[in-house]
C-alpha cells in the first residue's frame, strides 16, 4: 500500500488540489445562488447599460 502511495504521490497530490479547486468553485456557485446572483455571472456587469449605472442596490454607506 505504502509503495503504491509513494509511486503515485504526484497523482494523489495533484488530484487532491484539483478536487479542492472544484469544491471551492461549487461552494462559490452555491453561495452566489443563495445570494440571488445568477449562475451566468451576469448581474450589473452583464447589462448593456452598465456604463450608465453601476451602483449596488441597496447600498449602505458609513459616514
Amino acid at each position: 500500500m505504502l509503495t503504491w502511495i509513494m509511486e503515485n504521490m504526484a497523482t494523489i497530490i495533484i488530484s487532491a488540489v484539483l478536487i479542492f479547486a472544484v469544491a471551492a468553485v461549487i461552494a462559490s456557485m452555491v453561495r452566489s445562488k443563495r445570494k440571488g446572483k445568477s449562475s451566468c455571472g451576469c448581474g450589473c456587469a452583464g447589462c448593456a447599460m452598465n456604463g450608465a449605472c453601476h451602483l449596488a442596490e441597496p447600498e449602505t454607506l458609513r459616514k
Partner: peptide, 10 residues
C-alpha cells in the same frame, strides 16, 4: 433586447 446584448437574464 438592448439590455439582452449584455446578458439575456436582466
Amino acid at each position: 433586447m438592448l439590455i439582452g446584448t449584455g446578458c439575456g437574464i436582466p
